[in-house]
Each structure stands twice: as structure tokens, then as C-alpha cells.
């Protein structure tokens, strides 16, 4: 994996800084509202990581990620609310369902390439949106969705600690995974799929594994998010805007880098928060979009690449 001292230092600093945030609130340096914003950013970061594992390196663009997040969220919500399954069990079950369900439906789609894959994932999201409203509305809550779902934490600080620990664990895990030969193989896959197959590697297996990891993260984050919010609504979940937010977070942070999407998620969430006094409504997507488009057209590798380049120049290691 080729870990160096500065990797340990950077991760240590990141983890310490994130876990110490609530102390800033105690000291009066930061409002509780900011902590709540950071919770949102943590969940968005996990979704963006999940997207990044599948799409960031391989070039198989998923436009239907809310499909996976939705399975996780609906899974645990229905299990815990309608069947009285304890949350400790319903969340792992929901994650498992996300992985199995996602694999069963999307494995055939991994045979097709490029734009076709993007389209099929988009169609899956739309299908899921239609399905939850029609099939067993007594369980899914139909168009209205579900509310009164058990929440896991009380107060901003506890919610934050849970979200940030999950996010850091997911980020570290995926970052390490992408530093193995598996990560190299995924880069290679995105650059020349035939040559990967011509090097003796089963591309279907590589894609399926990337997909499983992606589904695991999406299911996990979706399940915990629903137990944080206490409710879920299909229109908000299976919305092209949420696909957009996830992809933009990953892209402007830096696709394929895992840490980039985390940066992107925090950047986007705080951008929105700072803009709130000036732009209270739907304008935010206009701003998101404009920022994303400009950044994407001029630096497709995102903030991560900009920071990396800056650091290298700083230390004089070209």
C-alpha cells in the first residue's frame, strides 16, 4: 500500500480535527447550527464516496445513486417501523439488502458500456421512485413517505459524533482500499477496459466488487441518515437534484481520490449555508451548478488536484 509518514500525519490531523469540532461549540467559537450543517455534509460525503468508488475511477457513471441509498433507507425504515426490528439489526440487514438487491439488478447492467450504463442507472432510480409509491404503500408510505422513524441520537453533538465517525471510517476504509492493487485495477479499467481483460483480469468481477463496496457505503449512509432525520420522502430522495448534488460533490472535490469527494461535500454544504441569507430558495442549485460547471470545465480533476499541486509546489517536490 506504500504508506508514508505524512499519510499517517494527515489522517491523524484530520480525524483529531473532526472529532474536536464539538469542543469549538463549547468554547463558543462555533454555533450549534454549524454542527448540524456538518452532519449534513458528512452524509453527503459518504454518498459522494460511494459514487466515487463505483464511478470515479472506472468511468461507469452512475446517475441513479439514490436508487442504492433508497434501498438502504427504506429497508431499515420499514424493518424498524413496520416490523419492530431493533435498529441494531435493521441497519445491517438494510445494508445487506442494498448490496444484494443492487447487485441482482445492476449486475446485468455492468455488461453494457458508457452512456448506456448511465442511462440504465437513471432509469433504475425513476423505477424505484414509481415502485415505492405503488407497491405496498402500506409499508412504504406511498407518495407521502414515512415519518416517526426511530432516531438514534439526541442533540447536535451526538448526531455529529455519530455522523463524523461513520464518515471517517468509510473514508479511511475506501481510501486504503483504493491504494491497493484493486484501486490500480479500477483506474486501469476506466482507461482501457479491453486491455484489462487482455491482462488476464475479469472486468465483470472488478466492476461487481466496486459496485458492492459502493452499495455497502450507500446503504449504510442511507440507513443512518434515515435514523437521523426520522423521516423520508420519495420525491426528495429520488430526485435528479440529489443525483446532481452527489456527483457534483465528488467531481469538484476530485473524482477517484476518495478524499476529494469529502472535500467537495463539505465545500458544497457550506457554500449553501453561507449563501442561505442571500439565496434562501431554489437558487442554490443555480449557484451549485454554476460553480460546478465552471470548476469542471477548467479543472476536471477538482479541488483535490488543486490542493495537491499547491502542496507539492510548497514542498518543492514536483
Amino acid at each position: 500500500m506504500n504508506l508514508r509518514w505524512y499519510h499517517f500525519a494527515a489522517w491523524g490531523a484530520l480525524i483529531a480535527a473532526m472529532l474536536l469540532m464539538p469542543r469549538l461549540v463549547d468554547l463558543g467559537l462555533m454555533g450549534r447550527g454549524t454542527l448540524r450543517t456538518m452532519i449534513q455534509a458528512c452524509y453527503l460525503a459518504m454518498f459522494a464516496i460511494s459514487w466515487d468508488v463505483l464511478s470515479g475511477r472506472t468511468g461507469y457513471i452512475s446517475f441513479g445513486h439514490p436508487f442504492l441509498i433508497g434501498i438502504g433507507a427504506y429497508g431499515t425504515a420499514i424493518l424498524s417501523k413496520k416490523f419492530g426490528v431493533p435498529v441494531e439489526l435493521s441497519i445491517p440487514l438494510a445494508v445487506l439488502i442494498t448490496m444484494i438487491g443492487g447487485l441482482v439488478v445492476l449486475l446485468p447492467a455492468l455488461r453494457i458500456k458508457g452512456s448506456y450504463f448511465a442511462l440504465v442507472t437513471l432509469a433504475f432510480m425513476e423505477l424505484m421512485y414509481q415502485l415505492v409509491q405503488v407497491i405496498r404503500p402500506d409499508l412504504t408510505g406511498g407518495t407521502r413517505g414515512l415519518s416517526g422513524i426511530k432516531t438514534l441520537t439526541r442533540g447536535a453533538e451526538n448526531g455529529y459524533m455519530l455522523a463524523v465517525s461513520l464518515m471517517l471510517a468509510v473514508a479511511l476504509g475506501c481510501w486504503l482500499l483504493m491504494r491497493t492493487r484493486f484501486g490500480t485495477a479500477l483506474w486501469a479499467l476506466g482507461q482501457n477496459e479491453e486491455a484489462v481483460s487482455g491482462s488476464g483480469l475479469s472486468t465483470i468481477r472488478l466492476k461487481a466488487m466496486a459496485f458492492l463496496v459502493s452499495a455497502f457505503v450507500a446503504g449504510l449512509a442511507g440507513a443512518f441518515l434515515v435514523h437521523y432525520n426520522g423521516s423520508l420522502a420519495p420525491r426528495a430522495m429520488f430526485d435528479i437534484n440529489s443525483v446532481f448534488t452527489i456527483i457534483v460533490a465528488a467531481l469538484i472535490g476530485g473524482a477517484g481520490t476518495i478524499l476529494g469527494p469529502v472535500l467537495g461535500a463539505f465545500f458544497l454544504t457550506f457554500l449553501l449555508e453561507w449563501l442561505r441569507p442571500f439565496l434562501p430558495g431554489a437558487e442554490r442549485f443555480l449557484v451549485y451548478g454554476a460553480v460546478a460547471l465552471v470548476l469542471y470545465m477548467y479543472q476536471p480533476k477538482g479541488i483535490y488536484a488543486i490542493i495537491e499541486g499547491g502542496l507539492k509546489r510548497l514542498w518543492g517536490r514536483a
Partner: peptide, 19 residues
């Protein structure tokens, strides 16, 4: 993939302009 993503972003921007 760049065209797909760029056009998706544009679509959402236009949608929010409509909103």
C-alpha cells in the same frame, strides 16, 4: 462521460432557473 456530466449539470441549472 464528460459530456454526460456537463449536460446533466446544465439540465439541473436550467431546472433551477425555471423554479
Amino acid at each position: 462521460s464528460a459530456v454526460e456530466i456537463a449536460t446533466l449539470i446544465l439540465a439541473v441549472v436550467l431546472q433551477s432557473a425555471v423554479v
